[in-house]
Design a binder for these strands. Structure first.
Lengths: 323, 323
DNA sequence: ACAGAAGAGGACACAACCTGGCCGCTACTC
DNA sequence: GAGTAGCGGCCAGGTTGTGTCCTCTTCTGT
């Protein structure tokens, strides 16, 4: 089985890779395909000669990209795809959000058209998803309706059950911008037309109405990034409650050593051994204590309350140390 | 100049020829591709090695044909399956755990063999997954290796990088029982053979070794349910496993206020506002920090290392407070 | 059952092709 | 202007692919 034409196989992989991602730096492709960058360039050339429109960006942040409107040869699942598929769908079947059963069926359907080897791969992957919060059921119909509205940029009208359980009297109207999942729940990020502000609605409390309203012009989400927006929205309100005290510090540690321990916050690399950490906790004391877990020098950026908390924590610890 | 690789190009052509027609006699293909029949046979072999299911008919009226699985009955998903598939894979591509890119490719691959209507459905669904923690990358290879071991019930040998970043000297040996995802991270729930206890290992810190060990008989997980087990494990902090540094302190707090936050240790009531706490952590520093989370006066009973850690922590905090 | 059609595949020699390295260029960003 | 990233020529050496020749095996139709 060592007889396969490396080159052709690589070309197919290359196509698959290019299809999966916006921009691929040549170096990354080289690494991924396990060939030299020079060969990647040649491969790209080859694909071009075969008629595939690969556009390229030069300079920093450059890379390759597959142009649109291409007829690709029937690509096959490779092992990684099979694993990804199984993992994703199995998670959906255990942690699901009303789509468990559909996900299970989909997995089965795909399974059927796979070569035996891959089918076996799929079968061996067993994953359990554990959620912090009991997952609220959202019908795929609702998901679909919201998705469609987002995609079509049409004002969504819907009934909404508030957190207290009271159905809002009047149907809400909002410009749907993003469908987001966070911590096992589904949220719609939308511009609430009635309140003239950005809101996140829990999808499981939404009952879409038909027909949808007129089209709208997309607005720019504060923060630019949906992920950032939602993270910011919820950062003070974990499922288990709120984290009202937030602060910012600079740590003398590589970001990579800090990030894994931060569950609710942002870690930003400032240098090889330096990073910025923005996080929150229940109280200033708890926040200071949480930050102190990193065995590194801390520089408090703010706010003053955090500084004070550190001062008190210092006295506590000094006392505990027997002076 | 036009140094187009004949072979690769031919393979692609062959693929599209086979797609376009039911049955191709080898001789015809040879003529069409302008190569000898022998080469056609070799090309077919090559495609087979690349995973394309090409069926062949021998005898008179024989020929080659592209089998199912690549383009045939355009996967008959129903809408719900399509939605589930898109949702699951899109989540995987944004929240991914090292499989984002593979998930994206898988979605594209599936997309290709869908009828136009469903493809549209798939394209409509846009989901963003927001994770609390920057997700640690886990290679699909690791996931696969773990999964395989779980499935085969074979003892897994692996190198493990501890929370502190120190690679454990000796490889660990464990009976893998479940692969779990929780809060955006992957964990292996296993019976640690060396420590003779249940442990949860972070998958991103695992480097599996080959070969795997002998088969094992499944044990019953305390709590029965993986989900319950993992949830219980993590309900306190996100540390897991054994804690080498143990110490004892007396806190000026009611036991009832301390106990809920201690998941690996003992809280003993000493008075209405006083309790003894024995617990452990990965390092003395971490232990001191963990104890300091209680906003109360601390009296270190022992050992001396903990006292020292508190002293150091005090200096750290004082420095952080800007003195 | 037999002949014939068609694919399978081993051997071999020669040519073509690919790859990695090296290097100077160009295009773009900060 | 410096740094990054892609471009592409050139070369040497080893790998691959190809055509040809042959012998088997598997079907089908008579």
């Amino acid at each position: 089985m060592t007889d396969m034409p490396k080159t052709s196989a690589r070309l197919l992989s290359l196509l698959s890779l290019l299809q999966a991602r916006r921009d691929w730096p040549g170096a990354l492709l080289a690494e991924r395909l396990e060939v030299s960058p020079r060969t990647v360039r040649r491969d790209v050339d080859r694909l071009r000669e075969l008629g595939y429109p690969i556009v390229t960006t030069k300079g920093p942040d450059g890379g390759y990209r597959l142009g649109a409107g291409t007829r690709l040869p029937p690509l096959l699942f490779d092992d990684e795809q099979a694993v990804a598929l199984s993992v994703a769908l199995r998670i959906a079947t255990t942690a699901g959000a009303g789509i468990e059963e559909a996900a299970a069926r989909a997995l089965n359907t795909v399974r059927q058209v796979m070569p035996a080897r891959l089918r076996h791969r799929v079968d061996t992957v067993r994953v359990t998803a554990v959620e912090r919060a009991p997952t609220a059921q959202v019908g795929s119909g609702v998901l679909l309706a919201i998705s469609d509205a987002v995609h079509a940029r049409e004002v969504l009208r819907f009934d909404y059950v508030s957190a207290t359980g009271d159905p809002t009297a009047a149907p809400r109207r909002a410009e749907p911008h993003h469908l987001v999942t966070w911590g096992g729940r589904w949220y719609l990020v939308a511009w609430d037309l009635d309140r003239a502000d950005w809101r996140t609605f829990r999808a499981d409390r939404i009952t879409p109405r038909t027909p949808t309203g007129p089209r709208f012009a997309p607005r720019e989400l504060p923060g630019g990034d949906v992920a950032a927006f939602v993270a910011a929205r919820f950062s003070g309100t974990d499922d288990s409650g709120g984290r009202p005290c937030r602060g910012e510090v600079v740590l003398d540690l590589p970001a990579a050593e800090v990030a894994p321990f931060v569950h609710d916050g942002v870690v930003e690399e400032l240098g090889p051994d330096r990073c910025r950490l923005v996080t929150g906790s229940w109280s200033w004391h708890a926040l200071a204590s949480a930050i102190s877990r990193f065995d590194a020098d801390v520089e408090v950026v703010g706010p003053a309350e955090l500084r004070d908390a550190f001062a008190r924590l210092a006295r506590r610890c000094a006392a505990a140390a027997g002076n």
